[in-house]
Structure formats: structure tokens, C-alpha cells
Amino acid sequence: MTTFKLIINGKTLKGEITIEAVDAAEAEKIFKQYANDNGIDGEWTYDDATKTFTVTE
């Protein structure tokens, strides 16, 4: 398992979430479901060097 981080730069929600996932594809699926569940819709980026996803509304 690898640790992945999501940085949320939303209009109403900001913060960071860290999860353990098998790979970046699994982490992205989990993070996008979390964002969808919380009404966050924005532009996604991923930095493989730091294993960090960012979503900006």
C-alpha cells in the first residue's frame, strides 16, 4: 500500500485527506468519490513525485 494525499481547494471546503491505496488509480477513484459526495466539482491535478492529488474549484 502507498500513501496518497488529496488537497482540497474548494469554494466552501478546504483541507487535506490522506489515504492508503494500492496505486494512484485506486486513490483517484476514492478521492473523486469523496469529492462527489461532498459536492466538490473542480479541476484535478496529480503529482506522482509527491503522490498528491489536488482539486480546485
Rank of each mutant, 00 (worst) to 15 (best):
E43Y: 09
V55Q: 01
T50H: 14
F31T: 03
T54L: 09
K14E: 02
I30E: 03
I17G: 04
L6W: 09
T18M: 08
I19V: 15
L6K: 00
K14N: 13
K32W: 09
T56R: 14
E28H: 12
T56K: 12
G39F: 07
E16A: 11
Y34Q: 02
T56Q: 08
E16W: 08
T12C: 06
I40A: 07
A35N: 07
A25R: 05
F53H: 03
F53C: 01
V55L: 09
G39C: 02
G42K: 01
L13Y: 13
E16H: 13
A27S: 06
Y46E: 01
I40W: 11
V22K: 03
A21R: 06
F53V: 01
I8Y: 15
A35T: 15
E16Q: 12
G10H: 08
A21I: 10
E43S: 07
F4C: 01
G42M: 03
N38F: 08
N36P: 02
F4N: 00
D48S: 13
E43C: 03
A27T: 02
T12N: 15
L13N: 08
T12V: 13
V22R: 04
E57Y: 11
Y34W: 07
K32L: 14
D41F: 09
I17Y: 09
K11F: 06
V22L: 06
F53P: 00
N36Y: 14
A21C: 03
I8D: 01
D47Q: 08
K14C: 04
A21Q: 02
K11Y: 12
D47S: 08
D47R: 12
T52Q: 11
A21T: 04
V55I: 10
E16T: 15
D48C: 14
K51L: 07
L13D: 14
Q33C: 03
D23W: 04
I40C: 01
N9F: 14
D47N: 14
E57R: 09
D37R: 12
G10F: 11
K51W: 08
I7C: 02
A35L: 10
T54W: 03
V22M: 08
E57P: 09
D23N: 14
T12S: 10
V55P: 00
M1C: 04
F53R: 00
T52G: 05
K51E: 02
T54D: 05
V22E: 06
D48W: 05
D37W: 15
E57H: 14
T52F: 15
K5D: 05
F4T: 00
T12H: 15
E20F: 03
L6A: 06
N9D: 09
G39I: 13
T3V: 09
D23L: 03
E20T: 05
N9T: 13
A49S: 14
K5F: 09
E16F: 03
D41R: 12
D48T: 08
D23C: 02
A35K: 05
D23T: 11
Y34G: 01
E26Q: 02
I8Q: 08
Y34S: 15
G15H: 10
K29C: 02
T12F: 07
F4E: 00
A21S: 08
M1A: 06
A49E: 12
T3P: 10
G39H: 09
F4K: 00
I19P: 00
A27N: 00
G15M: 04
I17N: 14
G39M: 15
T54E: 08
A35E: 01
Y46H: 05
F53M: 15
K29L: 08
A24Q: 12
K5I: 06
T2Q: 10
K32M: 04
A25Y: 15
T2P: 02
I8E: 01
I40P: 02
F31I: 12
G42Q: 02
T18S: 07
K51V: 09
D48R: 02
N38C: 02
F31V: 14
D37Q: 11
Y34P: 00
A35S: 11
V22T: 07
A25T: 08
I17C: 01
D47W: 09
K5Y: 07
N38K: 12
N38R: 15
G15I: 10
I8A: 08
V55M: 12
G15D: 05
G15S: 12
Y46C: 02
E16V: 06
K11W: 05
E28F: 14
D41N: 14
F31R: 00
W44T: 01
F4I: 01
K32D: 12
W44V: 13
F31S: 05
T3Q: 03
A25Q: 10
A24N: 13
I7A: 11
A49I: 09
K14F: 06
T50Q: 05
I40K: 05
K29T: 06
K5A: 03
M1W: 05
T45Y: 03
I8S: 04
G10D: 11
G42I: 11
T54C: 02
E43D: 08
K14P: 06
F4S: 00
T3R: 09
W44F: 08
E43F: 03
M1E: 08
D41S: 07
A35M: 04
N9M: 13
E20G: 04
Y46I: 07
K29D: 08
E57I: 10
T50L: 15
M1V: 11
D47M: 04
T50C: 02
T52S: 12
Y34T: 06
I7M: 11
T56S: 13
G42T: 02
E28D: 07
I19A: 12
G10S: 09
N38Q: 13
L13W: 14
K32G: 03
W44I: 15
T18I: 07
T50F: 06
F4A: 01
A49Q: 11
I7R: 13
Q33Y: 10
T45V: 10
A35P: 00
D48F: 08
E28A: 05
N9A: 05
G15A: 13
F31L: 08
N38H: 14
E57M: 11
T18Q: 08
A49K: 11
A24L: 08
D23F: 09
A27R: 00
I40Y: 14
N9V: 11
I40S: 11
L6H: 00
N36F: 15
I40F: 09
K5R: 10
L6I: 04
T45K: 11
V22G: 06
I19F: 11
